[in-house]
Every structure is written in C-alpha cells, then in structure tokens.
Design a protein around this nucleic acid. Structure first.
Lengths: 335, 335
DNA sequence: TGGAGTTGCGAAAACGTTTAAGTAAGCAAT
DNA sequence: ATTGCTTACTTAAACGTTTTCGCAACTCCA
C-alpha cells in the first residue's frame, strides 16, 4: 500500500506537507498542493482510516444496534426501510455504519464494549429489546446516541406518531359507522403502549365503550399469532364489525382466519392495518392502514445523530416525532 | 480511555507484557498473566481496534456490497435473509461487517477504494449490478472476495440453484397436466439467464413447445410490472393455463391482474412463484413456489469468505451451489 | 563448575497519520 | 539596517498496539 511517506519522497517534501496538502490546510503553497494531489492520484494512494482514527479519535463510523429475537428484523419492511434510509443519509454525510453486537468471537461483550472497541463516533439503536440492561448501559454511556421508537430520558429519540396514528384510525372507522370495534395489539413495548393510549383516548373522545373481549394481543409481524387472535374474535357471540390489526404483516394471518370463516372483506367485516408496507397497496381489497414514514424516521435519526456528534454543545437531545398518514384503502365498509 | 500503558503502570510490567498476557502468548508467567487480566477487567480496558489494525493489517471487518437501484434491497425477504445470516455467521467467527459504497462524503470513490480505506479483510458482493465496472474492479482486485448469485471467473461464488429450480417447477406443472405454460422472467441478470436455461432445458426434456407470446418479462420484485405482463398474457386469444411468475413478490401484482379479469386461482388459472418468502405460505390459496435457501446462502458465503481470508493457500475459489426445494401450495390445479 | 537450554520479561521499532511548534525566507515599513 | 509580519514548509511527538530481538535468571546435566 502506498502511504504518505511514498508521496513525500516522490515530491521531495515532508510527510506533514503531504498530509496538509491532501487535507486542504491553508499553509501549503498552491503549486505544492497540486503536485502532491497529482502524485497521490498517480500512485494510487488511499488514506488509512485506522491510522487516522488512532490519531484523531474519529472514525466516521456509526454503530447500529439492529437485532431482534427472531432475527427477522431485516425482513420487515418498516425496519428495512428505516435502516436503508438511515444508511443513505449517513453515507451522504461521509459516515459508514457498522453493526454492533454482543457476540464478537468466543467471548461475549456488551454493545458498549463493542462500540468502544470499534471506536464508533455515535450509536443508533434502531431495533432492540429496550429493557435489556446492555441496551440501557449503551444508552446512558457518554457516546452520542439516538434511539428509534423508544425514548430514553435526556437522550435523542426519533419517534413515530403511534398515539396519533391509532387515534386517527379509530376516528376513521367510527366515522364509517363502526361501533363494535376490536383491536389486536402487539407485544408489550413502548410502541404498543402509545398506540393503546391513542386508542383509548379516541374512545373517550367518541364516548365509545370497548368490551374487554374485543381487546386481543398478538406478536408483531407474526401472521400466525394474529390468525389465532382473529379466530377468537370471530368466535365471539357478538362479532365485531371491524378489527384493527397490530400491523400490516399480521394482517396476512388475520385475513386467513376471516376467509376460513367464510367471511368477506369488507362486506362481512372491515379490517385496518398499521405500517403502510408496500403489500398493503397491492392486495385486494386494498388495505386501509396508517402509513408510518419509515424513510423519514431513518433519515432523521442519522441526521440528528451526526449533528450531535459534530456539534456536541449546540445540539440538544430532543424527542422528535415523525408524522405518518392515513392510507385509505377499500377494507373498511361504510355502515 | 484506559490503554495498555495504564495497565502496565499499575502492574509494574512493560506494555509488551500486557499485550502478550492479554493475547495469550506463551512466554508470560501464569501469575503475571492473571494479574494483568484482572487489572484490565478492573480498569475497564477495551482494546483499540484502530491501533491493532494499523499494526497488524487485519481489521476483522468484512466489506459488504449491498445496493440496488431502487434502494429496496433490504426490503426483499430473500436478500434480507441472506444478509442476516451472512451477518450472524460472520459475527460468530468474530468478524464485523461494514457496508461499502461509492459515495462517502463529497468526493466519489470506487468500492475498491472504500474497501482499502477501511482496510476490510475481505468483501462479499451480495446485491449489486454485476456489470458495473466498479464491481468488476472490486471483484478482480487482490482482496479475498465472494459473490452471491453471480459467478466471476476464478473467484469464489455462492449460487442458488436457479437452473434446477426452474426445471423442477416446469416438470411439476407439466405433471399436473399443464401444457399452455407462460413464464414471466425478470431483469436481464445471471440469475434470469440460469432460470431461462433451466426452463428451456426442461421444455426440451418434455418435448414441450412454448410459443413466443407466452414469454414475458418484468422487473423482479415489482408487482406493478408483473401486473402489466400478466394482463398481456390474459388478453391472449389462447390464454395459458398456468403462469410462472418471476418471483413471489411480483406475484402480488400478477394476482391482482387475475382477480381483475374475474378469474380464480387455481380454478381458472394456475400460478407458480419463485423464492419461497414468508408470505407465500400465508396467502390463500397457498402459493406453489421454489424455496431458495437464503439463510444457507448467506451463511455459506460468510463461512467461505472467512476461510479464504484465514487460509489463503489451502482455500480455493469454487462456485458453490446451494439447493432449494419445491414448496407445494394450492395454486396449481390438476388438469 | 561450567556450559547449554529454558523461562519470563523488557526495550524499542514500527504501523500511517495528524498537528503543535518551530524556522527560514521574503517582504514591507520604519 | 532593523523589526515585525506573512508565507510555506519541516521537525518531531503522539495515538495504542504488536512483535522481534535481546537479556537476565534459573534449571539441568555432565
């Protein structure tokens, strides 16, 4: 590998001069700068990020926590899209991303240790178990950090408007004349909590009472578990006229249960999803759902994290909410 | 940050001794080793990967090319699964992964330059435009490399059995009595080429003639373009009894065209997908498709790449084929 | 007792960069 | 001619490791 030393020799200048010329410092003459840059190109010089990092304590690397128990995180469009746009924004600003894990090699280590080992400039927790002590340790370390869809106190967070989204959906189906409305919520996370809050707040606003048996639970992105929950709802003596599913993906399981029961959407029963994944627009009937702005979430998370890295004193740790929108399909019938 | 220097001082030994103790060298006494390790733990020592990389020229970092034009790569389950399992296997062996791109910061650079800058130990090209000169440059550099679903001469490659898969599918629908079989192929890539070869080879074996108008083309993973292609097929004077779609995801578009035409699957027309994504098992009727072993592809790619890195002389660049299997659903009718 | 071999550790250089501090030369103003 | 300022460059230390070589001290055996 050709290094600054080689360029320095060829140009008969010092290594320092080469460094400064290449990095655009002002105390280098125009002709020398040109010579150095030309020679570097000719010789096929590439900087060595390890040496630079060692000296400057900056890696231009962002650590990403992106795990889930089923290792299916990548597979869900919401997370996939978030991740993709996080990456694009980071790269646009000259940052690379590295996954953080707790199992490098034989000996285990915490996410924080991994982050320190790689010397990342900051960390984004996109997809993780936020109750995990290791995640807490990371979140409250002295590293610049941003979390997605979970807010730690005094830490930067980018959040989807789960409360609002859920409330709008409920208002929407209420407006379509539905009163017997069931809701299948997902796992016990901050996201679910917010959606529940939005749901009940809207109920209150509308003076709507939801019987306990209309409240079901399933695993997010698990059609199977949603299938089972839906079956229970359909077996009720007084069947709901509308079901709000935990998410679009689970909807596949729900629709199976409905079809099996010989019912048709939306004629016999109305359904609503959550997420706005690509598929929602393609199935027939088109799914009415709340489209989360995953791209904007990812982009914003990257932008804010980098801002906190580069302007540690002016940049403050806010809790930022990214708004989604109602995606009106054909899965809710006007009663 | 606490460094080896600090540990050395505290233990009254040299830095060299600390390094050797921590790295398990044999010329360190048992008692000193224990002392050093204990002290390191107490002081919260973390190694500095940049310094290590600088000295050893090894980063334990694998570069990943994972791009597509629509930036939807992550979103497709096949690639997502491949990536996930690549990552898991890499991490199991103590390697981290970094994405390679051609747009770090303001000035553009090639993938190879990026790889050199970060000093990755090897590169996997999982998702890319293989005709891109930058990709070729990377593939034929002196870095250990593995490609997925594309074979460069004398370079390690892990391939899905596209030829076999397609042939088996054709034999399957033929066995079900279908003769008027249409095939909507995807973009012009090595993958498509192999599937076409498999298709025509099977035709030959079966003595089956496929009229030109039964061969359509669409974009992979683009329901919209598949919708259009399917519409064309349905409008033919002699409609096919069975359509082989480019992939499971496009199937969503195809099924829309079919539904719009007032036809039912599989009673009026049979369909077959390709990929075996999760959704294929959940839709009704269940989709008959070829399940690619994405997990095994990712895992194998990582394992072979690392093998080539660690045993450069014994490890040879093979073209390895990973087999999938027929996933029999209910979307093909027995004629 | 002397030599050879072994064991345990340290000194120092090296990896490729960045940067503070220093310097020499040129120039302008006095 | 002196001073001071600017410009363009160099020197050298430092970042945190790894590793080669050297060197004592000890052990073993004749």
């Amino acid at each position: 590998m050709v290094s600054m030393k080689d360029i320095a020799q060829r140009c008969s200048v010092s290594i320092a001069t080469v460094s400064k010329a290449l990095n655009g410092h002002q105390d280098i003459g125009e002709s020398t700068r040109q010579l150095v840059i030309e020679t570097a190109k000719e010789m096929g010089y590439t900087a060595n990020s390890a040496a630079r990092a060692l000296k400057t304590n900056r890696t231009y690397n962002l650590g990403l926590v992106f795990v889930d128990l089923q290792n299916s995180g990548f597979m869900h469009e919401y997370f996939a899209s978030t991740l993709t746009h996080f990456r694009i924004e980071a790269e646009r600003q000259g940052y690379d991303i590295s996954f953080l894990n707790n199992r490098v090699g034989p000996q285990n280590q915490t996410y924080l240790q991994h982050a320190r080992y790689r010397g990342v400039d900051g960390v984004a927790i996109i997809c993780a178990d936020f109750k995990d002590p290791m995640i807490q340790e990371l979140a409250y370390s002295n590293l610049p950090i941003v979390t997605l869809d979970h807010a730690f106190h005094n830490r930067m967070a980018v959040l989807s408007d789960n409360l609002e989204g859920m409330a709008v959906l409920l208002h929407y189906v209420y407006g379509k004349g539905h009163r017997r409305i069931a809701y299948i919520r997902g796992n016990d996370t901050a996201v679910t909590e917010n959606r529940m809050t939005g749901f009940f707040r809207a109920c209150e606003e509308l003076g709507l009472h939801i019987p306990d048996e209309y409240l079901e639970q399933c695993e997010y992105h698990e059609p199977r578990s949603c299938y089972i929950a839906t079956k229970r709802l359909l077996a009720l003596p007084e069947r709901p006229t509308c079901i709000l599913f935990s998410d679009d993906y689970s909807y596949i399981g729900g629709v199976n249960a409905i079809t099996e029961a010989g019912l048709r959407i939306p004629d016999d029963i109305s359904v609503v999803g959550y997420d706005g994944i690509h598929m929602a627009k393609m199935v027939s009937p088109k799914l009415t759902t709340w489209e989360q702005n995953a791209a904007e979430l990812g982009r914003t998370a990257a932008a804010r994290l980098i801002d906190r890295i580069e302007n540690p004193r002016t940049s403050l740790p806010e809790h930022l909410i990214i708004h989604g929108r109602l995606l009106e399909g054909e899965s809710v019938k006007q009663l």
